[in-house]
């Protein structure tokens, strides 16, 4: 077991877990943050995506030990006091969420994209979200949500 200290959504946390435990499982099991989802377990679908020190990562591929001392943002940290972040509001209004299982990862990928390119081109949006699979929407409503969010933010 290893003692891992990290800051999750602004709160300092400490967990005692096997060093190779997946960050995804640490979040879901040890910290009860179930917003990050497992879709494939091999870094293909992006449903478990989180921001690790500002970098978009698939938490199913990150061992717990590696996040010691890191700052983490999960979907639970995107809204403030129950108020939707503009990205969340745009996903809701544009129909960017259907079944909702890819939505947490997709919203974090959008946040990462807009941090990098506040006014992204369609190509940048398509590339920026290419690591997050959505089987419901065909992505068009998501693209619209991202463009709307770029206007609002």
């Amino acid at each position: 077991m290893s003692l891992v200290q990290l800051t999750v959504n602004g709160t300092r946390q400490q967990v005692d877990v096997p060093p190779m435990k997946r960050l995804l499982d640490v979040l879901r099991e040890d910290l009860a943050l179930t917003g990050s989802k497992e879709g494939c377990g091999e870094g293909e679908c992006g449903a478990c995506a989180v921001l690790l020190d500002g970098v978009l990562v698939n938490s199913c591929l990150v061992p717990a030990l590696q996040v010691n001392g890191s700052r983490l943002c999960t979907i639970e940290g995107v809204s403030t006091e129950g108020r939707l972040h503009p990205i969340q509001q745009c996903f809701l209004e544009c129909g960017g969420a259907q079944c909702g299982i890819c939505t947490p990862g997709m919203i974090l990928a959008t946040q990462h994209l807009l941090d990098k390119y506040p006014h992204p081109t369609m190509e940048q949006i398509q590339e920026g979200l290419a690591g997050n699979l959505c089987r419901c929407t065909g992505y068009m409503r998501i693209f619209e949500a991202v463009q709307e969010a770029a206007k609002v933010a």
């Binding site: 979907i75 639970e76 939707l84 969420a97 919203i107």
Partner: peptide, 10 residues
């Protein structure tokens, strides 16, 4: 969407 708010909040 009825259940949309919970979905975008995760």
């Amino acid at each position: 969407r009825k259940e949309g708010r919970d979905k975008v909040l995760g």
